[in-house]
Amino acid sequence: MPQTGGGEEGVRTADQQAATRRRLENTVDMALFAVIVFAVAGATVFVMSVTIGDWEFWADWKDRRYWPLAPVAALLIFPAGLAAAFWSRFRLPVACTAVVLLYSLMRWLSAYFNFHIFGGFPLSFVWPSIFIPLAIIIDCTLVITRSVFLTGLIGAFLWGLLVYPVNWPLLAAFHEPITYNGEMLTAADLLGYEYIRTGLPEYVRVVERTVLRTFGDAVTPLTAVFSGFICTLVFYIAWGAGLVLNRQAWLKKL
């Protein structure tokens, strides 16, 4: 229906207005895309790096006790925080997957350029963990349940619970037992001995002692369940933080 737009150009139809609106909105989306990608990728990798970095950097740090717990819980902060913004404001249940996809791409970029090309470590020693399927589970839970509470309870719990089996195809070979100078250790431990780092002896992380170091006890499922519990809590806290930081709050003075 023709509408009067006013001014010297006279009549402007609703179609013309809609076309202008659509063009400008698309421009905003495209311009903001790079901002979001840069910010999410940079922030997530940086925060992970200085919070739990070593578990992501080194194959011999991917143990059964802390690796399925600390990095998994720490990585959930950004996806959950941004999911709060994307879900509450735009009803887009894609934030977790998008954040983790970006994080994974950038970790591989860093593993290759920083640790392999610059530092000289073999890629098989510095590969990052796999989190993408876990992020998809959280987003799918949000879509299906449309409930933040249930997403934390089910999706975030599965995020922590399943990290070990999701990574097992890559990790299994590194946990093969090896006898070396009369001592039993894993292939990953041996790689750690071969690629000596300045932080030694801290970097020789024989963290599993006595009965824990039995290649097949209940360490992994125990950690997985605890990790699921921690991740549920982290999800709720990060979601809340995301909501707070996404409030349109203004101060009169800085």
Partner: peptide, 19 residues
């Protein structure tokens, strides 16, 4: 921020394990 987080900080991480 991206360059700092992805390429800057972790090149420092790699450096400190060698030197």
């Amino acid at each position: 921020v991206f360059l700092t987080g992805v390429l800057g900080a972790e090149s420092d991480a790699a450096w400190h394990q060698i030197v």
